[in-house]
Amino acid sequence: MRRRAVLAAGLALPPAVAAPARAQDFPGRAVTMVVAFPPGGQADVVARPVAAALERRWRQPVPVANRPGAAGEIGNAFVARAAPDGTTLLMALSSLAILPEAARLLGRPPAYELDQLAPIALFTADPTLLVVPAASPWRTLEEFIADAKARPGQISYSSSGNYSALHVPMAMLTTAAGLDMLHVPFQGGGPALTALLGGQVQALASGPGPVAPHLREGRLRALAGWGARRLPDWPEVPTLIERGFPEAEYYIWAGVFAPAGTPPPLREALRAAMAAVAAEPETGRALAAGGNTLDYRDGAAFEEFLRLDSARLIRAVRRIGRVE
Rank of each mutant, 00 (worst) to 15 (best):
T124D: 01
A111H: 06
A83C: 14
P100R: 12
P137M: 09
G178S: 13
L122W: 10
L117R: 03
I98H: 07
A80R: 05
A165F: 10
S164F: 12
A148I: 11
L130T: 00
P133N: 10
N76H: 15
P68D: 01
V131T: 01
S95E: 14
A135V: 14
E101L: 08
L122H: 12
P84H: 00
Y157G: 08
P119A: 01
A165W: 02
T88R: 14
L117F: 01
L179A: 08
A146W: 08
R67P: 09
P169E: 07
G161M: 01
L166V: 14
A165Y: 11
A150H: 04
P61R: 03
N66Y: 15
A171H: 02
A83S: 14
G153I: 03
N162S: 15
F123N: 08
L129N: 07
A82V: 06
G69W: 04
E73S: 11
A177C: 05
Q60A: 11
K149H: 12
S160E: 05
H167Y: 12
W138E: 03
S159A: 06
P169G: 11
L179K: 10
Y163K: 05
I120G: 02
G75W: 00
D115T: 05
T175S: 15
A121S: 08
M172V: 05
L141D: 06
E113W: 08
V184P: 13
D85L: 08
I145M: 14
P169L: 09
P127R: 02
L93W: 13
A118M: 13
A71Y: 00
V79Q: 06
P68Y: 02
A176Y: 00
Q60W: 05
L96C: 12
L106Y: 10
S164I: 12
E113Y: 10
I155W: 14
L90E: 03
L114Y: 08
L173H: 00
G189P: 03
L114R: 06
M172A: 13
L141W: 12
V64W: 05
I120E: 01
S95W: 10
Q60R: 14
R67G: 11
S136L: 09
L130W: 04
R139Y: 09
A103T: 00
A177W: 00
G189Q: 02
P61D: 00
I120Q: 05
L117W: 00
V64R: 03
A118F: 09
A150L: 01
L114H: 09
E101A: 14
Q116S: 08
